[in-house]
Each structure stands twice: as structure tokens, then as C-alpha cells.
Write a protein that binds this DNA or RNA. Structure first.
Lengths: 131, 131
DNA sequence: TGGCGGAATAGACTATGTCTAAAACACGAC
DNA sequence: GTCGTGTTTTAGACATAGTCTATTCCGCCA
């Protein structure tokens, strides 16, 4: 995937630091926290500052390349899967799994009086099974 | 409601501090953060320490009188409504509303291969209407 | 070469939450 | 009553997440 062009097409001025962050976070299949991204990007590019990582992640969110999800205590995680979907959280490991939108059906949300629902998702918690 | 007996029945040694915390958080219809509880309890009982409020809230959770919910960035909120239900978050005000379990139906979660789902809820985001 | 504007940097700052060591307290044995 | 043991409370240190600010850096254009 050509992250450089992806960035340009979304109106993001590419810089080496931004590219390093974007490449890491967009290719990660896990749901990373900002500091975890910083940790990893620094391995390739040890001079990158924490502020730049935070700024870049927030920029990627604003430009629609990334979404934030509130699934863990105390921290936001970044999800490169930007289309609507659900989440499963393993209560032991903390690991987060994407659940395809069509795997679960929700009904009744449209009939709620007094609430203008713009988006929703199901959050499931439990244990991942061997298979 | 007799919070004192409620605590005793749940195996919590009552103390003045614990009682003050429990009375506040159990009667609140809003979803409070720990520091918000501290703030309020201190108005009645100015010597209570932050650690005690945190300890008490965690104890109430452990004993099943309270639940934590992960709905806002950066902080946990405490919910005195311990039975299963869903949540609506107003994206402007940040206010959280409980949605009764029966108002929304979810299907398909039992058929997920490889996931042992212990609990789930729907999180809705949007705007509360005047109504 | 000089200047301009955006980006990156270090570090300060705030907030949430946990932990630790010491003091306070409750309660039973004597 | 006094002592000793347990548990609770307390203040403050610590850890982590996240934002902000002031300065430096860098690319680009005249």
C-alpha cells in the first residue's frame, strides 16, 4: 500500500516523521495506543518526539485515515479500520478484535425517543477461544 | 434507601467515609468519575482523602454495588445501575444516558466462532433531542 | 542569501489512577 | 483501663496519558 499517496490524497503534507507514524499505524492489525506507536516508531527513527507522534495520529484521525476507539481504561486506541464495525475485548489479555459489521444485527435503536443516534457499535467482552 | 444495610449485606465494613462515598455515588443518576465523587463528598466531609474515595469505589465495584463503564476518553465512570443495559453518549455534552436492555435487540453474537462472549452492550453516540 | 511559514522538538503542565509508609482507629484479651 | 493486632485512612509520591508552549529546524521562494 502506498501510504505516501494515501496521505497526499487526504490532504496531509508528508514528512519523514509523519510517514513513519502512518506506515506503522496503518499496517498494524492490532489496536495501538499513542505511546505504543511512539515506542515502535522510535525503533526505526529514534529522534521522533512524542508530541509529533500525538500530533500525527490526531491529524490522521481528522483526515479520516484512522479512528479512535474507547475500549480500554485510561487510554484511547487507534483503529486503522475506519468503516463501521463492532469490537470484542478479551478480558484476560486486553486484546481487541474487530467484528465485522454484518456479523451482528442490532434493532430498536432507531425507535429510541429523544435520541438522535449518529453511530453505534456493539462491544463484546469475554475470552478468545483457541479456535 | 438504607445504604448502611446495603453495604453490610454485601460484606463491606461500614465506616463514615465509605458511607459518605456510597451514599453519593449510589444516589447519583449521572455517571460520575472518581475525582468528581471526591469533589462532591469533600463538600460534606472535607477531610476525606482521594485515596479513600478511590479505594471505596473499587471496593463497591468488587462487591457488586457498582459497575465501571468505559465510555469517555481518559477516565472510567461509575454506574450504580448494575444490571445489563446499553448506553447513549451525547457527543456534544458528553452526557451519558442509560438505555434499557429491552429497548434494543442484538442478534448474531452467539454465533461468533472463536469468541466466548460473557457480556455485551450497545454504545450509541449522537445528540440528545429536546423532546 | 535572507526571510517566511509550517513542522518538529524538548520539556512543562494537567489529569487520572495506583502505591507506600505512617498515623489513626476498632476491638478483643487480659 | 491498657495493650496488641487488624483494618482503614491519610498525605504524598509515583506512573501514565495527553495537551500545550516556546524554541528550533527545515523547505521553499524571492
Amino acid at each position: 500500500m502506498d501510504v505516501l499517496n494515501l496521505m497526499r490524497r487526504h490532504g496531509i503534507q508528508p514528512t519523514p516523521q509523519r510517514l513513519a507514524v502512518a506506515e506503522h499505524v496503518l499496517s498494524a492489525r492490532a489496536h495501538l495506543t499513542a505511546d505504543r506507536v511512539w515506542e515502535r516508531v522510535r525503533r526505526k527513527c529514534p529522534t521522533v518526539s512524542r508530541a509529533t507522534v500525538y500530533n500525527t495520529l490526531n491529524l490522521l484521525v481528522k483526515k479520516g485515515l484512522l479512528r479512535t476507539q474507547i475500549l480500554k481504561e485510561g487510554t484511547v486506541v487507534f483503529d486503522s479500520h475506519v468503516e463501521a464495525h463492532h469490537h470484542f475485548v478479551d478480558v484476560q489479555t486486553g486484546r481487541i478484535y474487530d467484528i465485522p459489521w454484518n456479523a451482528i444485527r442490532v434493532s430498536g435503536h432507531a425507535a429510541l425517543r429523544g435520541f438522535d443516534v449518529r453511530e453505534y457499535q456493539v462491544i463484546l467482552r469475554g475470552r478468545r477461544r483457541a479456535k
